[in-house]
């Protein structure tokens, strides 16, 4: 019974982690869909969000989950500023390499990470919330349960928040005018322009939304993770793997990709070793490239056309 219990516990941990990963991935997918560039400063923006949550907790004792309401608008405006003053001018510049914008976001990421090191030192930090280590146990509710499973409180709360934010985003994208315009811009820029969509505005707003989403993810991550200035890079990679896994520019794909990655990563950590988790992340990335180059989105599409 013990191996099964361990397996289920790992699966639960993977799903909870995957929900949070999905939130990071969606932000990147949105930006990629509309702007056609990869935002390599994505993880660094999350780091900024985490620092906002950290300082809110440290200075005003505000719960990290409440600081979402501060971090999201802050990151939204930061994203808008980055897009308007740095990325947009480069879109017009004529150069040999079209990847200039990607390299530009690397530069932005470097500056953000380094500024964080200068101002906040490279110490590892965390928010010691009082529910940080508490958990719900299955045996508390069902005395003779054959399997004793547990749910960590902060992980579960973060997961629920992530689900809620994802659903609201879905409503925004599919029901509101602005959401529809963003999707139109992503699908076909010229057609959207002809239809009277303010493409320029949509680009700016999308970058802001993407940054805001990842800022929210930062607030959700800080109760369960620790924080240091160079943490951004690894989350940029995670976001990218999710986007490839899910299919470029597909929101549903990003959610599924996030879940797959979360489960796979926690399986690697349990059965192979903690240190190998980043390699496991990459194995799944390579597998996706070789066997499913279009990502989960291509599977979904195939099914739809099949009908």
């Amino acid at each position: 019974m013990i191996p099964l219990e361990g397996f289920l516990q790992t699966l639960i941990a993977g799903i909870l982690l995957g929900g949070l990963y999905a939130l990071i991935g969606i932000g990147m997918t949105l930006i990629m869909g509309v702007m056609k560039i990869i935002n390599l400063a994505h993880g660094e923006l999350m780091m900024v969000g985490m620092y906002i949550a950290f300082w809110m907790f440290e200075l005003f004792k505000i719960d990290p989950y409440l600081s979402i309401f501060v971090a999201v608008p802050a990151l939204f405006f930061l994203g808008i500023a980055l897009q308007k003053f740095l990325i947009n001018p480069v879109l017009k510049v004529d150069s040999i390499l079209p990847e200039n914008q990607v390299i530009l976001t690397v530069g932005i990421g470097m500056v953000l990470a380094n500024l964080a090191t200068i101002f906040f030192k490279s110490d590892y930090r965390s928010t010691p919330v009082d529910y940080g280590t508490s958990a719900w146990y299955l045996s508390d509710y069902w005395i003779d349960t054959p399997l004793d499973l547990s749910l960590s409180v902060p992980w579960t709360v973060s997961f629920l928040f992530a689900v809620f934010i994802t659903i609201s985003l879905w409503f925004f994208l599919s029901k509101t005018d602005m959401g529809k315009s963003i999707r139109a811009t992503a699908q076909d820029l010229d057609a959207a322009l002809i239809m009277g969509v303010n493409v320029k505005l949509m680009r700016v707003v999308t970058f802001g939304i993407g940054a805001g989403l990842v800022g929210a993810a930062g607030c959700l991550f800080i109760p369960i993770y620790y924080l240091y200035p160079s943490l951004g890079g690894q989350f940029t990679l995670i976001a990218f793997v999710i986007t490839i896994l899910g299919g470029l520019g597909s929101t549903i794909g990003a959610i599924i990709g996030g879940l797959i990655l979360g489960i796979f990563e926690s399986m690697t950590a349990t059965y192979i070793g903690m240190g190998w988790a980043p390699v496991g992340r990459f194995v799944i990335f390579i597998a996706a490239l070789i066997f499913l180059p279009g990502g989960v989105a291509s599977l979904l599409k195939r099914q739809r056309f099949g009908k």
């Binding site: 480069v90 510049v93 040999i96 530009l104 530069g107 470097m110 500056v111 990470a113 380094n114 090191t117």
Partner: peptide, 25 residues
């Protein structure tokens, strides 16, 4: 010394915006 990445990053941004093909290019 601690700010060397910031300065490199700013240099990179400036080069990309103003001299996208580099000094020789």
């Amino acid at each position: 010394g601690a700010a060397h990445q910031t300065l490199f990053g700013i240099l990179l941004i400036v080069i990309i915006i103003f001299l996208p093909n580099g000094i020789v290019g």
